[in-house]
Each structure stands twice: as C-alpha cells, then as structure tokens.
C-alpha cells in the first residue's frame, strides 16, 4: 500500500468523473418515462379487472404491446439508477455493494420477465 500514490489510491473510489455520467443517464431515462408513463398507465388501468381473453387481446395490439415493453425496460433501468443513489445515501460498506448488485440484478430480471411476457402475448395474438 505504501508504494501507491494518493492519486492512485483515490481513483475509482470517489466520483472520478463517473457521477455526472450516472446523473446524465438517469435524466435520459426520466425523459423517456415522461412520455411512456401516461401511455402505459391509462391502458393498464382500463384493462385491469377485465377477463383473460379481453386483456390478451388488448396487449396483442401493437401500440399497447410496444409501449408496455418500452415501459418495462425503461422503468427498471431508471429504477436501478435511482435506487443506487438511495442506497449510496443510507448504506455504507459491504451491504452497500451487496444491495446495489442485488437491486441491479432484480431490476434486470423484472425487466426481462415483463417484456418477454408481453412479447409472447403480442406474438401469440
């Protein structure tokens, strides 16, 4: 350790200019969600509570299906970008790393679950 310079020891541990990159990516996903959220929520609210056949038919519609897939992917991308900042604020040390990795993997899993399910319905319609 004594042979490392201070600079070398700090690089990669602080922001090292990666903070603005993360900030920037989160703004991009937020802007996408400004458009996608209303387009996703209203059809979802409309179909919630309807019969199996009716909901299958609704998401067989290309517009509904594309919006729903785009929402699933963008929302979980934005979610793990956001939850990482929350975790960094409150949790430190080993658990910080564990939680960031766990939420990131879960976000990827749910983005896949949601979008593959919708695609299957869409292609099966």
């Amino acid at each position: 350790m004594r042979y490392l310079t201070d600079r070398k020891r700090a690089t990669g541990l602080g922001s090292a200019r990666s903070g603005t990159g993360h900030f920037w990516e989160q703004r991009v996903s937020a802007i996408a969600l400004v458009v996608l959220t209303p387009l996703f929520i209203f059809p979802l609210a409309y179909n919630m509570g309807d019969s199996y056949e009716a909901v299958r038919a609704a998401y067989g519609n290309p517009v509904n299906a594309i919006v729903a897939v785009a929402f699933m992917i963008t929302a979980f991308l934005h979610f793990f970008q956001g939850i990482q900042v929350v975790i960094e604020d409150y949790v430190h040390g080993r658990w910080e790393l564990v939680l960031i990795i766990t939420t990131r993997l879960l976000s990827a899993a749910f983005a896949l679950i949601g979008s593959l399910a919708i695609l299957k319905i869409f292609f099966g319609a």
């Binding site: 199996y52 399910a117 299957k120 319905i121």
Partner: peptide
C-alpha cells in the same frame, strides 16, 4: 405488474 403480465402469458 410484470408478474401479472407473466401470468397473462
């Protein structure tokens, strides 16, 4: 909601 879609599929 993702799980709801999974069940629907």
């Amino acid at each position: 909601v993702a799980i709801w879609f999974l069940a629907l599929a």
